Amino acid sequence: MTDVIGFGYAAFVAVGGLVGFMKAGSLVSLVMGLAMGGLAAFGASQTSRNPSNCLAILGASAILLFVMGMRFMNTGKFMPAGMLAALSLFMVVRYGTRLM
């Protein structure tokens, strides 16, 4: 079964990096958004084949939860850091429960 939620999350991360580059000219946002989105897409493809093989997408989600959570706490702005931190928290809980 295809992990539609995982692929959607990966697309959201990648598009967010592209939007960050286009709005603010941030090359770091572009590179990291595409890299983390790619890692999440790879993880979603792995979980599509075997639902218990979720380490890649869990790792990408945990990294983004930490980084964007810290950014949200420092700026207090929900967009984009708070939203991505919230989505990443959902993904960490979703895939973390699969490992237990």
Rank of each mutant, 00 (worst) to 15 (best):
M36Q: 10
F72A: 09
V31Y: 11
G20H: 01
F66L: 13
L39K: 09
G16M: 08
S48H: 07
L39N: 04
L65W: 05
I5Y: 08
S48G: 09
A56R: 06
K23L: 12
P80I: 04
N74H: 07
V19N: 07
G82A: 05
G8T: 01
Y95F: 04
L89Y: 10
L27K: 15
G16P: 01
G96M: 01
M36Y: 08
A56G: 13
V67R: 11
C54N: 12
L84I: 11
A40F: 03
L18N: 08
T2S: 12
L84V: 12
K77Q: 14
I63D: 14
A44C: 07
G17H: 02
N53L: 12
V19G: 06
A41E: 04
M1N: 13
A40D: 10
G16T: 02
S88R: 03
T2F: 15
A60Y: 00
C54G: 09
F42L: 15
A56E: 15
F66Y: 07
Q46K: 11
A81F: 11
G8C: 03
A44S: 11
G69M: 00
K77F: 13
M70E: 13
N74Q: 13
V67Q: 13
S52W: 13
I5Q: 06
R98Y: 06
M1A: 12
G33E: 07
F21E: 01
L34E: 10
A86M: 10
A11R: 00
T97H: 04
P51W: 07
R49I: 14
I5A: 09
A60I: 02
A85E: 00
F21T: 00
N50H: 11
T47M: 07
V92C: 02
M73H: 12
L64A: 14
M22S: 12
M83L: 14
G43N: 06
P51S: 14
G82R: 00
G59F: 08
V13P: 07
V31Q: 12
L34I: 13
A24D: 14
L18I: 14
V13N: 03
F90L: 07
M1T: 13
L55D: 15
Y9T: 01
A81P: 05
G76N: 03
R49M: 15
G69P: 02
M79S: 15
G8K: 04
I5P: 04
F12R: 08
F72M: 08
A81R: 05
L58W: 04
F90W: 10
G33A: 05
K23N: 10
A11D: 12
M79L: 15
V93F: 05
A35D: 08
Y9W: 00
V92P: 01
L55V: 15
N50R: 14
Y9P: 03
T75L: 04
A62V: 11
L27D: 12
S88H: 02
I57L: 06
